[in-house]
């Protein structure tokens, strides 16, 4: 399947990446090329194959539900582009 400029614009918006209108053609060409290439997987019948999500085969352990760490407000906010009174600050969302 090819990815037309309309789809590119939609995907870019889903991915929250601003793409200028003069870039759409280039992305459409490149991403279509990649999609066409990966579609060779359709040549393999996988009807009875179980998907493999993770090779580690490790059972997730549960830990005690206790506080073991924390209280790093300053460290957590250290790299924030903007913080206010101990919180991350963002532009106003609700008028």
């Amino acid at each position: 399947m090819s990815m037309d400029v309309k789809t590119v614009a939609k995907v870019a918006s889903l991915a929250r990446i601003r793409v200028e209108s003069d870039e759409l053609d280039k992305y459409s060409r490149e991403l279509s090329g990649i999609l066409k290439w990966i579609e060779m997987l359709d040549n393999v019948n996988t009807d009875s194959v179980e998907p493999l999500a993770n090779v580690a085969n490790i059972e997730l352990k549960q830990r005690e539900d206790v506080v073991s760490d924390g209280n790093y407000q300053q460290a957590v906010l250290k790299n924030a582009p903007e913080s206010l009174q101990g919180y991350f600050a963002v532009p106003k969302v609700i008028e």
Binding site: A15, P51, L52
Partner: peptide
């Protein structure tokens, strides 16, 4: 490019055709 390919293959309607298919091939 990779974020957009990834977003596309995980998006509604394409998830099984691409992502699950790839996981099967991975098996």
């Amino acid at each position: 490019r990779r974020i957009m390919i990834g977003t596309y293959v995980l998006s509604a309607g394409y998830y099984d055709a691409y992502y699950v298919k790839a996981q099967k091939l991975r098996r």
